[in-house]
Amino acid sequence: MEYEEARQRIFDTLTKKQKSKSKFYFSDLAKILEIKPRDAKKLINKMVEDGTLEYWSSGSTSMYGLKGTGKQAHTEHED
């Protein structure tokens, strides 16, 4: 899958789900892209680097979300 297409698909799907939740497991993203996790990882890493996605962690588990979204984003970004 081309990077731009993947990015758009992630962006659209996550935006649609914003109302109910803002954080997603890696496997949710891989499912949205409909490709193997190992291949999805490269694309998703790139989305973090270009600022589309950001990480969230409970310390033991990691999740992904669109940058700056989520109900705790305000306090976590300390702005």
Binding site: S20, K21, K71, Q72
Partner: peptide
């Protein structure tokens, strides 16, 4: 509901 995302 203000502080948390309920599905999470």
């Amino acid at each position: 509901d203000k502080m948390c995302e309920i599905p999470l």
